[in-house]
């Protein structure tokens, strides 16, 4: 199938993948609902959890390269390297352009956001919602990334609150969000923002010498040694 947004996608541009699935009807029967490619009414590229899982399961184990296989003192420090590698490759090829994201940067971010605990869920900075999973995706972020009429121009990601506990889905969402944050940072700075500046915006730090930002930089440098 031609004109796909990425070779890993199952459907052409303007459509997304839906799995076949069972449904229990009101009469008590169980019927199978067809899967296949489904039209995006917005015309924007959309990806949903089922297709992300298919991509993750079929493509990521074959990949090599960063992130570095260092656990950083965490018992699960190397557990999500395949997912980090795979989703960085995917979003770099869809969005990366001349300045791709470094998988080690994402790994350092996960280390400082959640300590590699996929089930982490805490109140977000505003106190009104929650931040979930490895990359601590907030409720607000999740909604922005799926809003066809919102600030995300294209390449939307649709995951539910419960799906964000899945490590692969969380990383896919978090990396997509980083690309959006970089765009926002660049607009604010009126020049191309670095990924470090993007991380500051992601974490809500105003200064490079913020102790938590220094901790992130040290973690990243540890991975690059």
């Amino acid at each position: 199938m031609t004109n796909k947004i990425h070779s890993w996608r199952k459907c052409p541009l303007g459509q997304y993948w839906r799995n076949s699935h069972p449904m229990h009807t009101p009469s008590g029967k169980i019927v199978q609902r067809r899967g296949g490619c489904v039209h995006n009414p917005s015309g924007k590229d959309q990806i949903y959890a089922e297709e992300m899982k298919l991509i993750s399961d079929s493509e990521f184990s074959k990949l090599t390269g960063a992130p570095a296989g260092k656990a950083l003192g965490f018992s699960q420090g190397n557990k999500f390297d395949d997912e980090i590698r795979g989703w960085c490759k995917y979003w770099n090829e869809v969005l990366g352009g001349d300045n791709p994201i470094d998988p080690d940067l994402v790994k350092a971010l996960i280390a400082t956001e959640s300590g590699f605990r996929g089930s982490a869920r805490i109140k977000d900075g505003s106190g009104q919602g929650h931040a979930t999973g490895l990359m601590q995706i907030t409720d607000a972020t999740r909604k922005i990334l799926s809003d066809e009429g919102g600030e995300i121009q294209d390449h939307l990601v649709n995951v539910s609150e419960s799906e964000l506990k899945d490590p692969s889905l969380n990383i896919a969402t978090g990396v997509r969000w980083l690309f959006h944050k970089r765009k926002l940072a660049s607009k604010r700075l009126r020049r191309e923002a670095s990924w470090e500046e993007t991380i500051m915006l992601y974490k809500g730090y105003k200064r490079k010498d913020d102790p938590q930002m220094i901790k992130f930089v040290k973690t990243y440098q540890e991975l690059k040694k």
Binding site: Y16, R18, N19, H21, P22, M23, H24, T25, P26, R33, V38, Y48, A49, E50, N158, S160, S162, E163
Partner: peptide, 29 residues
């Protein structure tokens, strides 16, 4: 009730029109 990632309830519209029967579903995603 669908099994799509999670098991959950979904709204449906069931329509009978003469001998035709329709079931209108919502997106399972």
């Amino acid at each position: 009730i669908i099994e799509y990632g999670t098991v959950r309830k979904v709204p449906l519209l069931d329509v009978k029109f003469g001998s035709s029967v329709f079931q209108f579903n919502v997106d399972p995603e």
